[in-house]
């Protein structure tokens, strides 16, 4: 067990160093900073709800940055190993394919955590500066615990997507199909709750309960990631969610990530790498 953990840590370290060498963090941080600076130009158009708007803007930019990391770095790293046959070199050492999958996931997850920490700290600084520069009535609330919760939710969403990328990388060859599948997966995850809401509204009139059941089942495969969206709480007086509203989405997504990784490991073990 200790040996396996050591192997995972070693390979994860290689993934982290590779990410740093490719300027994945620095480039994305500069991108986020440029977006935030550009966004400031538009804040004159928000006359009252400045706190809410700046908080939403900041989290959305961080989300886009994380999304770019996943689509253009994580997908590439997972496929790069396969496409350039690096996987053969790594598997030639005494590590199992499952260890390999977990290591790549862990390495990318740590990189993502580092990116989120940098963006989170910058975000808090930017929000504090904006709050100081406007009258209190326009930016009444800024809560550090909810800011952490919102960031944890965002990181959790990114981990779900990362685990799905690992699953797709094992299932199909090449980075471009994985990228397309990941985008499709994300759109289905965003769209399914909207479809469910629409069907629920008409279910009583048209008796489409079977369709509703089908959509509910599909939601277990394509989870509603907005359940982990707590960003509006950080800078507003919105009602605090109950403990179950916080704990359940995190529990569901953690188990979902574990299942995806287990499936990815199983697929890698059965896959012909030649």
């Amino acid at each position: 067990m200790t040996k396996t953990l050591r192997q995972i840590a070693a390979l994860a370290q290689l993934i982290i160093l590779d990410g740093l060498r490719r300027h994945a963090l620095l480039g994305l941080f500069l991108f986020a900073l440029a977006c935030e600076t550009g966004g400031l130009l538009f804040f004159d158009f928000i006359p009252r709800d400045i706190g809410r708007a700046s908080n939403d803007f900041l989290f959305s930019i961080s989300w886009i940055t994380g999304f770019l990391f996943l689509l253009f770095h994580a997908v590439h790293v997972a496929a790069w190993n396969d496409e350039r046959r690096t996987i053969h070199t790594l598997l030639a050492r005494p590590i199992s394919r499952a260890t390999y999958v977990i290591s790549v996931f862990a390495g990318l997850a740590v990189l993502l955590l580092m990116l989120n920490c940098i963006l989170g700290a910058t975000g808090w600084l930017v929000l504090s500066l904006i709050r100081k520069s406007v009258q209190a009535v326009y930016f009444q609330n800024l809560s550090l615990p909810y800011f952490f919760l919102a960031w944890l939710g965002l990181y959790c969403i990114e981990l779900v997507l990362l685990s799905v990328i690992m699953l797709f990388s094992g299932s199909v060859r090449g980075s471009f199909p994985v990228l397309l599948l990941t985008i499709s997966y994300y759109l289905i995850c965003s769209g399914l709750p909207v479809v469910r809401q629409t069907v629920t509204q008409h279910a009583d009139q048209q008796g489409s309960h079977s369709l509703l059941l089908l959509l509910k089942t599909l939601s277990s495969v394509f989870p509603d990631i907005t359940q982990l969206d707590f960003k509006t709480l950080a800078a507003s007086s919105d009602l605090a969610p109950s403990l179950s509203q916080i704990a359940l989405p995190f529990s569901v997504s953690s188990i979902y990530v574990a299942i995806c990784l287990w499936l990815a490991c199983s697929i890698y073990q059965r896959r012909d790498l030649q």
């Binding site: 959305s60 969403i157 907005t226």
Partner: peptide, 16 residues
């Protein structure tokens, strides 16, 4: 509904 699907996590920003 299309805005919601397309914007996902960033739907608040889309509204703003």
């Amino acid at each position: 509904s299309l805005y919601r699907v397309a914007s996902g996590y960033g739907r608040q920003l889309a509204a703003e």
